[in-house]
């Protein structure tokens, strides 16, 4: 064979050789491994003590659920229907496996042997300030681990709002129902 024929052939063969390199280029992907960093991880933690612009988190009411060292008793965010709805969704994802859908502490994981959390409907639990709930999600409590890395701050408050709604729902009386809706309720009850 002359060089005219085999050179292009060689070039073709070389090209196919490159294929896998193009599929897997030498760059880092999220959560990959690296032998450059001593912990073997591609994802780098923020250097300790770093405060990014706009992330001073000086608002202790919002970020720590405390004011002057005491737990806050009212939500530091505006209470809206959307907030409670968001809270419901997030509660069902992150809390219901243990605390149960209605907050009675009978979640599936508890039924498989996890420590029994207290029901949110106990007298003691209903009297705890909202700041305490926020603090538990952020820092964990006894056997329960912290959820800070998985739930953003705003969502934590949404969950707290929803837990309050759950507590109301299990201890409601006719007086809590708006006048216009009462007839509907008693009617449904009778059916």
């Amino acid at each position: 064979m002359s060089a005219k024929t085999w050179l292009p052939l060689l070039a073709l063969a070389a090209l196919t050789g490159c294929r896998q390199d193009m599929h897997d280029p030498p760059r880092y992907r999220a959560q990959g491994s690296s032998d450059f960093f001593s912990d073997g991880r591609v994802n780098r933690p923020v250097v300790e003590g770093t405060v990014a612009r706009g992330q001073l988190r000086a608002d202790t009411k919002f970020y720590q659920g405390r004011e002057g060292g005491e737990f806050v008793k009212t939500l530091p965010v505006e209470l809206t229907k959307d907030l409670v709805k968001r809270g419901q969704e997030r509660y069902n994802i992150y809390c219901s496996p243990c605390h149960g859908m209605v907050g009675d502490g009978e979640g599936m994981v508890v039924q498989r042997g996890f420590r029994h959390p207290p029901s949110f409907h106990l007298e003691r639990m209903r009297e705890l300030p909202v700041g305490h709930y926020y603090d538990v999600i952020t820092n964990g409590f006894g056997a329960m681990s912290s959820y800070a890395s998985r739930i953003p701050v705003k969502d934590r408050w949404a969950i707290v709002a929803y837990v309050r709604a759950l507590q109301l729902s299990q201890n409601a009386t006719m007086q809590d129902v708006p006048e216009a809706e009462r007839g509907k309720l008693s009617q449904e009850g009778r059916q």
Partner: peptide, 8 residues
Amino acid sequence: CMSCHSQI
């Protein structure tokens, strides 16, 4: 994983 498997 450990949020559950610390006990289960």
